[in-house]
Simulated scan of single mutants.
Amino acid sequence: MSARRIIIAALATALSLVTACSGDPGSQDALPGGPDLVKKSAAAMRTVKSAAFTMETENTPQLRVKKAAGRLSATGDADGTLQLDFAGSLQEISFVLAGDTVYFKGVTGGFQRMSRSQLASIYDPSAILDPDRGIVQLLSGALDPETKAEEKVGGADAYRLEATLSQQILAALVPDIAQNVDGVLWIDKATSRLLKAELPLSATGKATVSLTDYDVPVQVTAPTG
């Protein structure tokens, strides 16, 4: 074989190897479709037994609840803390939801009582895991979900999506939201559970809801004093 033919054969072999390795660009790393992801996530969230949650806000004068954190059970019991804005004054409140009764107290003093319906007019964290009001409905009703990237959230591999989220459902999760929100969702790759939701509410303001400790046993006990 001539030198010229050897060079041509070598180039042809090299090109075929490059083509075989590269294939269709993005075929190996193609992101799953947004509609399929939110559907799977809604189904996964429907089976959740318990979780820990945080809700934090930035530059949101229209929201009374500035921060919230606690533990939730799928039965509706919960405990944690709320930071509320009362006429420009921030107050920290501890709460326990046990059955139909809510126990709450400020930084000083003992626990007082209110009904669950009275708390719901301010903030009802038990809605988060309620399949008829919370995350399940938020995911099921997400409009135009589009998967944007793969990212880490709290050490977990996740898909980041963008979608339009319903004001009516969001208001159960973040009180006083008055409009639909073009939000960002992070869905766990391994379990399809929602890890985080970021809700832009203005040019500079937003609310962020995060969920962790899925199915870690939660036992909520009514306070005695």
Rank of each mutant, 00 (worst) to 15 (best):
S2Y: 00
A3T: 03
R4D: 11
I7V: 13
A12D: 02
T13R: 07
L17N: 06
V18I: 15
C21E: 08
D24P: 00
G26H: 05
S27I: 11
A30E: 14
G34C: 08
K39M: 13
K40V: 00
A44N: 11
R46Y: 00
K49M: 10
N59Q: 10
T60P: 01
V65H: 06
K67N: 14
T81N: 14
A87Q: 13
E92P: 03
F95V: 09
V96C: 06
T101W: 02
V102L: 08
V102R: 08
S115W: 10
R116M: 05
P125T: 07
P125A: 10
I128C: 02
L129V: 09
R133I: 14
V136M: 03
D144C: 04
E146Q: 12
E146D: 13
E146T: 12
T147S: 11
T147K: 07
E151K: 03
K152A: 07
Y159D: 05
L170K: 13
I177Q: 04
V184F: 10
L185A: 05
S192I: 05
L195V: 03
E198D: 07
S202A: 10
A203G: 15
T204V: 12
S210E: 14
L211V: 02
Y214H: 09
V216W: 01
T221C: 08
A222L: 05
A222V: 04
A222F: 03
T224M: 11
